[in-house]
Amino acid sequence: MRISVTEAKGQLTDLVRRAEAGDEVVLTRHGQPAARLVAVKAAMDRKSRRALLEAARRSGSAKAKAGPGAARSQDFLYGDDGLPG
Rank of each mutant, 00 (worst) to 15 (best):
A21H: 05
V26I: 14
L83W: 04
A43R: 08
D14T: 07
S59T: 14
A70P: 05
L12K: 05
A66T: 15
G31D: 08
L15I: 09
A8S: 06
K63L: 14
G10P: 01
R18C: 04
A64Y: 06
S48V: 12
D14V: 04
V26K: 00
A56Q: 15
Q32Y: 10
V16C: 03
G67A: 14
Q32N: 06
K65S: 13
I3N: 02
A8I: 01
D75G: 09
D81W: 02
A35F: 09
R17I: 05
D14S: 12
V40F: 09
A43G: 10
R18Q: 14
D23K: 06
R29V: 06
R50Y: 08
A55T: 12
E7A: 06
A56M: 14
L27I: 03
I3L: 02
V25I: 10
P68V: 15
K9W: 04
K65N: 07
P84Y: 04
K9H: 11
P33D: 05
A21N: 07
A21L: 08
Q32S: 10
V40H: 11
R36A: 09
A70T: 14
D45R: 02
K41Y: 04
R17M: 10
T28W: 05
R72F: 06
L15R: 10
K65C: 05
L83S: 02
L83Y: 02
R50C: 05
A71W: 11
Y78D: 01
R49Y: 10
A66L: 15
R72I: 05
S48N: 05
E24D: 08
D14Q: 09
A55S: 13
A39N: 03
V5Q: 07
M1R: 06
K47I: 07
A55K: 14
A64N: 13
K9R: 13
